[in-house]
Amino acid sequence: MKIEALFPEVCSLFGDGKNIKYLELMLPEAEFIKTPLTGEPYLAPDVDLVLIGSMTERTQRMVLEKLIPCKEKLLALVDSGVPILATGSAADIFCREIHYVTEKIDAEGLGIFDLEVRTDLFKRYNGKVLGRSGDLTLTGFKSQFSFFYGDNSAFPFMECERGIGINPQSRLEGMRRNNLICTQLLGPLLPSNPLFAEYLVSLTGRAAEAPFKKAAMAAYEQRLREFRDPKTEF
């Protein structure tokens, strides 16, 4: 089994790197390809799972320089059903274009989703999300400069019970195409949602138990109780 972590040295900004670590603990037999920004993305047909995490705005532009030439390889993986998880600001790069309002820069995105990103360094949004994706209930956190605009109703990752979706007016969080999952929930999404970690691995056709499942479930269930509490601010 091959798992590729794209640019983990710069795409692990808000604890996102712990998603890779959780999978390493979960799948000790798997081969982890950690592609640095100075290297070339592997993205070969035999890769089973791809991860990319939060990054700075400057890094987004460098990552796009690396990934746009690989778009066909990436699309081939998406179309063949390979799970790809993009967390936090990594989700931005899969949209059509990114407008960096503060720096007055426009960047072309990967264009896998027909959405426009507006990034304003002087408007930081912080919030929580409680949402459903299929049978799963996820909890997570958002801390971001960007919102997505456009219609993701045909391809949302999840529906928010509480918290916002791709922008303050949206209840639909993230994007999904086949098993490409892009979410603005950032950081340690897998250890924080052990059932989602198991689901993600199941998309590769394998089954594995979430590491330290008892401890992970205890933390998840406590968060779930709190997020469902009407007194909890979002």
Binding site: F14, G15, G17, K18, N126, G127, K128, F141, S143, L186, G187, P188, P191, E233, F234
Partner: peptide, 11 residues
């Protein structure tokens, strides 16, 4: 008192 974010714990 705030909208909490606990991701930092994992850093």
């Amino acid at each position: 008192n705030n909208v909490e974010n606990t991701c930092w714990i994992y850093d």
